[in-house]
């Protein structure tokens, strides 16, 4: 282990370390972040959801996008896997179907960062069990 010789050293060290703690910091305030849920049931994984999830996480980390990626179970849109549910604070959740790596990147660039809608939105006509009163 190297000694930390100055406050600058400490700050640099913090910067290189905070990366690993990002997920934890973000989960402290999930309401204020864009929440992206990747459907990761068997059908989703088979259709490539894991790659999509990795792409999202890498891009979010690299560009410091205020979003957090979580896994969800099957949403029932097996015909449209891989699917993502994107929840921008203050807006209704939007579900995107048939997502591939490029679409995932577009979703972040266009929808999450600029609020533009993209093709491939699955109209929501259901309530999740969490929303049912």
């Amino acid at each position: 282990m190297n000694k930390i010789k100055s406050l600058d050293d400490l700050r640099k060290m913090k910067q290189s370390l905070e990366h690993g703690m990002n997920i934890r910091e973000k989960s402290n305030s999930p309401e204020s972040l864009v929440q992206i849920r990747v459907a990761m049931a068997t059908c989703g994984i088979a259709a490539g959801a894991r790659t999509i999830m990795n792409t999202l996480i890498e891009k979010i980390e690299k560009e410091k996008i205020p979003a957090v990626v979580t896994q969800g179970g099957c949403m029932g849109y097996c015909y449209a896997e891989p699917t993502l549910e994107v929840r921008v604070p203050g807006k209704d959740p939007v579900v995107f179907g048939n997502v591939d790596t490029q679409v995932a990147i577009d979703i972040l660039d266009k929808y999450v960062l600029n609020g533009e809608l993209l093709d491939g939105i699955i109209p929501t006509n259901y309530l999740t069990i969490n929303e049912q009163k």
Partner: peptide, 18 residues
């Protein structure tokens, strides 16, 4: 200790000393 530093650990003593 790295996790403590990642959460601004030892930044307070750093700030005070300098």
């Amino acid at each position: 200790i790295d996790e403590y530093i990642a959460r601004d650990g030892y930044a307070a003593i750093g700030k005070i000393l300098t």
